[in-house]
């Protein structure tokens, strides 16, 4: 069975050394202002290139848009 993670409820294939930046690329997300949680834990922007996402992780990427 393939190893997977959930990104905003979409199943995607897990790979070795999977970072947040790689996930953003795979998902084709180009948004700038994001709040990201992995298994409920907040990931700060300076960790996007270094934080390794483990298999079966539940990743939530929330896109914040100006207007109010």
């Amino acid at each position: 069975m393939k190893k997977q993670i959930l990104v905003n409820d979409n199943l995607i294939e897990w790979q070795e050394n999977l970072t947040i930046n790689k996930i953003l690329k795979i998902m084709n997300y180009s948004f700038k202002m994001l709040v990201i949680k992995v298994d409920g834990e907040l990931i700060k922007k300076d960790e996007y290139g270094t934080k390794i996402v483990s298999e079966n992780a539940d990743v939530k990427i929330i896109h914040l848009i100006s207007g109010g």
């Binding site: 700038k32 202002m33 994001l34 709040v35 907040l42 700060k44 929330i62 914040l64 848009i65 100006s66 207007g67 109010g68």
Partner: peptide, 13 residues
């Protein structure tokens, strides 16, 4: 209840 996205992010985090 902010207007700007960067303020929304700052508050949430």
């Amino acid at each position: 209840a902010f207007d700007k996205a960067e303020m929304k992010k700052m508050l949430i985090e």
